[in-house]
Design a protein around this nucleic acid. Structure first.
Length: 222
DNA sequence: ATCCTCGAGGATTTTACATCA
DNA sequence: CTTGATGTAAAATCCTCGAGG
């Protein structure tokens, strides 16, 4: 899919799509900062609840593992470093761990989870986006078909499409619209596919507008 | 105040792949 | 070239905790 975060790590997305405001900006992990209230006891106790020593203990019948809560500052630093790089080399990991007073493994896990959850959020947004796009295209398709019906009903006499080559009216043909280049193509019924021409869409008022979501492009058709 | 539900997020496990000796 | 060891990422899942009804 095309909407992976480019180089940055944040989940900020700019989406424009039918039925939505022109752009939306989503920011992740704001919540981190809210739930990680500064502990009254001081930062160290916050992560020491599961320190290096009870690592093995919890896995073989010891007391149930306690859940580490990162402090505001730890989260901030992790986020900041995630923005710079989605992955850490061993040196960076070690340095960050020292800086945050965490185990390297915890830093590594945090990055793994962060990557996974970024991707999940991204996927959810894409899913939502595609659903809305689908709905909008369905509606557009309905409108266009109605328009075609109306035009067909009006068309009593000879065809009105003029050939760009001969400047003569083309024979009875079927009108189809290319969804990507927004042109009406007229396919002659008696000459086969080689005679398919493209004409700028002036007949139908509706326009198929592909919503922009970063580099996403509608499938090329022409 | 207590109970219950649910979401967030830290941790673990499994699997796949790359690199190197 | 093959093979086993090692490291890392992704994916799936588990589990704890706190907020809110």
């Amino acid at each position: 899919m095309a909407v992976l975060p480019s180089s940055s790590s944040s989940l900020e997305l700019t989406i424009s799509m039918p039925g939505f405001a022109s752009s939306q900006s989503l920011q992740s992990s704001v919540r981190d900062l809210d739930i990680n209230q500064v502990p009254s006891r001081g930062a160290e106790d916050e992560w020491i609840t599961m320190n290096m020593d009870d690592e093995e203990e919890s896995s073989n019948g010891g007391p149930p593992r306690k859940k580490l809560r990162l402090t505001k500052e730890q989260s901030r630093l992790l986020e900041e470093s995630f923005r710079q790089n989605h992955t850490l080399n061993p040196k960076q990991k070690e340095a960050l761990a020292v800086q945050l007073k965490l185990r390297p493994r915890q830093v590594e896990v945090w990055f793994q989870n962060r990557r996974a959850r970024s991707k999940l959020k991204q996927t959810e947004m894409e899913c939502e986006y595609l659903k809305r796009w689908f709905g909008s295209l369905t509606e557009q398709n309905r409108r266009l078909q109605r328009e075609v019906e109306e035009l067909r009903a009006m068309k009593v006499g000879p065809p009105t499409v003029i050939s760009p080559h001969s400047c003569e009216p083309l024979p009875a043909s079927t009108l189809t619209m290319c969804p990507s280049c927004e042109r009406v193509t007229t396919t002659s019924l008696d000459k086969g596919p080689s005679t398919t021409k493209s004409t700028t869409n002036t007949v139908l008022s509706s326009k198929v507008v592909a919503p922009a979501i970063h580099s996403r492009q509608p499938p090329a058709a022409c």
